[in-house]
């Protein structure tokens, strides 16, 4: 069995234009390594040189953000569906200042902002 991975437009240059690719691995790290073996360069767009999850992408296992599932250590099972989306963010503040202010993204939900409405 394989794990289905949905790839956003901006990363399809690595997958020969494919919107959905398949990979395997029992953790997100293993899956990304497997994907990178088939689609060279993809890993560098998902993981920072320091080995953390890139802030510019969101990765989901089924319906959950992997940042709430242990990030790169998230456990995967056959039949899971992975979705990669570009994080949508920005604003008037300079990037360095924003990074300093926000710090690294939490790997666990510290305080979940209320999302009473969508």
């Amino acid at each position: 069995m394989a794990i289905e991975v949905r790839v956003p437009t901006i990363l399809r240059s690595y997958t020969g234009g494919s919107k959905v690719v398949e990979g395997s691995g029992d953790t997100l790290t293993a899956l990304i390594d497997d994907l990178d073996a088939k689609h060279s360069g993809l890993k560098g767009r998902l993981i920072t040189p320091e080995g953390g999850l890139h802030r510019f992408v969101n990765i989901y296992v089924n319906d959950e953000d992997v940042r709430f599932l242990g990030a790169l250590d998230a456990k995967l099972n056959d039949g899971d569906s992975i979705t990669i989306l570009p994080a949508v963010a920005g604003g008037a503040l300079g990037f360095a200042a924003a990074a300093a202010l926000l710090g690294p993204r939490p790997t666990a939900p510290a305080t979940t902002p209320d999302s009473t409405e969508g």
């Binding site: 969101n58 989901y60 319906d63 959950e64 953000d65 940042r67 979705t83 989306l85 994080a87 949508v88 963010a89 920005g90 604003g91 008037a92 503040l93 200042a97 924003a98 202010l101 926000l102 902002p113 999302s115 969508g118």
Partner: peptide, 11 residues
Amino acid sequence: TFYEFDSLEQL
């Protein structure tokens, strides 16, 4: 000075 979509709402 910053905006960010909620990741689950975005999904």
